[in-house]
Structures are given as C-alpha cells and as structure tokens.
C-alpha cells in the first residue's frame, strides 16, 4: 500500500465534523477516484493525507510508515498535491519559474532543475510556455502548468482535487488522458477527487465514495455502481449509460448479465440483446 488512512477524524473549529473515521487504502500504481458530492469532505481528506492539516484522531501511513516519521522533504518527494484552482498553486511570475520552485527547494543543481522543468513541461504538453507569464495562460494551460509543478518533484503518488472542474469537454478529455499517461507510463499512483460519475468508469481502477465525512463504499467501478441505492443515497448518481441500461432492463425487459458503465459495454449489451431477439423471432 502506498497510502493508508486509519480512522481519520477531523472537525473544524465551527464544530463541523468533516471527516468521521475515514478508512482509505491505495495500492501502488492504481488510478483511484474519490467520489463524493460537494461538502462530503474530499478536500479536507486530501489536506489531511498531504499533511497540510493534522487529524484529530487516526493515522496516515505512506508506504507503511506513519506520516510523522517522514521529514517534510521526504514526504513531498513522495506525495504531490494539485489544487482545484490552479491560481492558488501557480505563484511564480512565469511557468518555468513555477515548475522550478519545487526542485530548487529540494536543493538540486541548476542543470538538474532545468532538466526537470523541461521534462515536466514536455510531459504535460506545454514545452513552449516556459517563459510565459501565468496570467496569460488559459484555464486548461494553468491546470497543466500546476500538474507540471508537482511532476517536477517526481512524486510516487499524485493527489488531484477535482482536476477537471471548470474545463470544457475537450479540456476534461485532455487532462484525463494526461493523468492516465502519467499513471501507465510513469508509474505514478493517481488519487483524484471528482463528482463527475461519468468519468470514473473510463479511467479508474478503484473508487472510494465519501459521504458526510465517511467512506460509504469502495471497490472497482463495477462493484461500486452495482450498489445503486448507496450511490444515490450518497448524493451521487449512476453513470448516464448505466442509468439507461437500468431503464432498458426495467421497462423494455432487456436482459443483461452486468451493469454497463461505458458506451462500449452498453453497445455490446444492446447488440447482444438485439441478436437474441432476432434469433427468437426467426425460430
């Protein structure tokens, strides 16, 4: 396990219990999604597992060792956090300087810093923006620059707070493809928060559903979305395709072995149902 959270509790000073005994296990190399409606505690949980705030109770372990045993430098080499609003994260005047910020703080040599900046910008697809002032970037470019800044620290685990929020469909697709590439090609474990349920089955290996500060479900997308009532009770919904399949089963008596979560799965299911229907008709 690269990350474990055990019975993590956190209450804000106004008395709001944001996290109530949260349990979380993330395996190395996984693409995990933390699903939850607004106010479910996703950002608070991320702040706890990145060490920005201390839990009132419970423990966070990174690669089997308690968080407290790591120095700041060690932990931030392993765990990177991308904020929801890139303007919070991009504080240097130019993209290149912002990406260089982490490596400089790690005490790397100038040539190594330059190499990491170039490498990170190449990976996120904005190598030509190194000298561009941040305020001239589009929102999508800012998101990429923010990811590059964290990538330059070469983390084993990258945590992203709603990376697709505020992006147009093309922007969402690009960012998700980038994250999948980083996960598969660079071997970086990804943990991202979202409430966009349609995205999840396409990219995630594992899901945790957080509701009112508690993990109410976890498992593969198939396992999680099979628990329709719990998903709906947690202020979420099924992916559109799964919802359509549910209606087809209920109202049109189409048979299916399992709930389709992607368009591909749904297509196969419908084609197979049509074929069965044709055979029956011919007989």
């Amino acid at each position: 396990m690269i990350l474990e959270a055990r019975e993590v509790k956190y209450t804000y000073s106004d008395g709001t219990a944001a996290l109530k005994e949260v349990e979380l296990n993330i395996s190395k190399g996984q693409f995990t999604v933390l699903l939850g409606p607004n106010g479910s505690g996703k950002t608070t949980l991320f702040k706890v597992i990145t060490g920005l705030i201390k839990p009132f109770r419970g423990e966070v372990r990174v690669e089997g060792r308690p968080f407290e045993e790591y120095t700041k430098e060690e932990i931030y080499r392993k765990v990177g956090f991308v904020f929801q609003d890139p303007n919070d994260q991009l504080f240097a005047p130019t993209v290149g300087e912002d990406v260089a910020f982490g490596p400089v703080n790690l005490g790397l040599s100038r040539s190594e810093v330059e190499l990491r900046v170039k490498d990170s910008l190449d990976k996120v697809g904005i190598p030509n923006l190194a000298n561009k002032p941040i305020h001239y970037l589009s929102y999508g470019q800012k998101k990429r620059a923010a990811i590059a800044g964290v990538l330059a620290m070469k983390p084993d685990l990258m945590i992203l707070d709603e990376p697709t929020a505020g992006l147009d469909p093309a922007g969402v697709r690009e960012i998700m493809r980038l994250l999948v590439k980083l996960n598969r090609e660079e071997g970086i474990t990804i943990l991202m928060a979202t409430h966009d349920v349609d995205l999840v089955p396409l990219y995630a290996n594992g899901i945790f559903v957080l509701y009112e500060g508690k993990v109410v479900l976890n498992g593969t997308p198939q396992e999680v979305f099979s628990e329709k009532e719990i998903v709906r009770g947690a202020g979420l919904r099924l992916p559109r395709v799964a919802h359509l399949a549910e209606i087809l089963v209920k109202k049109d008596s189409i048979r299916m072995d399992r709930l389709p979560l992607t368009i591909g799965e749904a297509r196969r299911m419908v084609v197979s149902a049509l074929k069965k229907d044709e055979t029956r008709y011919e007989k």
Binding site: K47, F83, D88, F91, F101, G102, N105, M153
Partner: peptide
Amino acid sequence: DHTFSAMSLRGYNGKL
C-alpha cells in the same frame, strides 16, 4: 492561505 499551502507542499524554505 491556499498559496502558502501550495508552497509548503513543494518544500518552501523561505526563498521564493
């Protein structure tokens, strides 16, 4: 406040 958190996460040591 958010920016300071982002800086801390990237090893801010008082030098920007």
